[in-house]
Design a protein around this nucleic acid. Structure first.
Lengths: 202, 202
DNA sequence: ATAAATATGTAATACAGGTTACATTATTAT
DNA sequence: ATAATAATGTAACCTGTATTACATATTTAT
């Protein structure tokens, strides 16, 4: 694109990935520019030139994180025909992600901006909106399952969505506390019994 | 106690309560000394003289918060004979606390120190220890229920404790996001079906 | 070859936030 | 009354952290 001027010596996408892991682990305010400089391996002015200030970097990082959820959990949730299997596999994917050796043990959306000073409330709100969107995705899936007559007519898709997002948010916190994969898996199994009891038996 | 010297013009316990509400709402790092000065109504040197630095104030605040959980949720959990009723009432108490007009809508232990800069990791760890203690309280209660033959012999108290603390942690986050009391109550009800299905029928 | 454009690193700047020094005030003990 | 003790408020200090100024380096266009 930029055909004139000194070329960038780092890959923007790789830099964003590195920044993402830092914010993922430490949260927005827990991450300092010095942390980002260390992880990316470029000095602050270069990072600023490429992405903007810390706020802007975080927004880029969030966009960079979204496909992990969209192509992981939500893809599984939406592409698995049977609702019980869909929920089971989605929760399994959560557990896998939250305990993978390849990334920090939590969910960026759930924990990267819980409390901030007033000037950074913007990010708290942005993540809250994403959590709302995430919940809506679950709700939509349960609405489909109801249309497909896979769950009882009396069940409320919104309530089920809220229940399972509560589980996911709780697991994100527990993973951050160092919970073992097997323990989170057990919690998922117990949560799953709930939906199983609401399933229409074939 | 101090019989000599100029007497304090504010009540330590009241000041701690005011500080508690600030930390409860904004978290450790989201709270500034200026916030505490505003809420307590005393200048920083007086607050320092009474409690120590910000770290020490927070520790006092956490101690001040503990009875809310111990005399609320845990008292209900331990003093209600039937396990299903105990769990139901304990979750109800969580929902009540997390949506009470008299306090911030979340749990201080769950959300006040999720991510911090390295120098404040101490508080993250302290709250993590309290969460562990909280989980153990649930586990102990389920062990008792098992001895009382109120839940099936095959059930694992530790797994049940982890499931319900996941629910509580998830609800603490949702409350902070502004969830309605009725919605949290519905989530509690769904979670409760799980334990009901493990109950020994009389 | 020279100019224009963009990236890079060093070093400075600006500011917010925790903490403390110091003078003053209010109390008790003698 | 005076000294001793402790609390208070003002104002400063200090440090960490985000941001930027500026000189230098590297590329393309003419």
């Amino acid at each position: 694109m930029a055909v004139v001027g000194r070329p960038r010596t780092f890959d923007k996408d790789e830099a964003l990935t590195k920044a993402m892991y830092v914010f993922w682990e430490k949260g927005y305010e827990g991450t300092t520019m010095a942390d980002l400089v260390d992880s990316i391996g470029m000095k602050a002015p270069s990072i600023y030139a490429a992405f903007g200030n810390k706020d802007a970097i975080f927004k880029h990082v969030v966009s960079h994180y979204l496909p992990i959820v969209a192509n992981g959990q939500l893809a599984i949730l939406n592409n698995t025909p049977n609702i019980d299997e869909a929920v089971e596999k989605t929760l399994n994917e959560c557990v896998r992600l939250f305990t993978s050796k390849d990334n920090p043990h939590t969910c960026l959306i759930m924990t990267a901006a819980i409390n901030t000073s007033p000037e950074n409330v913007e990010h708290v709100e942005a993540l809250r909106d994403l959590r709302k969107y995430y919940k809506t995705a679950w709700q939509t899936r349960f609405e489909k399952a109801k249309l497909d007559k896979q769950i009882e007519a009396a069940t409320d898709p919104k309530s089920l969505a809220e229940f399972f997002t509560t589980i996911v948010q709780g697991m994100a916190l527990r993973a951050k506390d160092g919970a073992k994969k097997s323990d989170l898996a057990t919690t998922s199994e117990i949560a799953l019994k709930t939906i199983s009891s609401l399933m229409i038996k074939i």
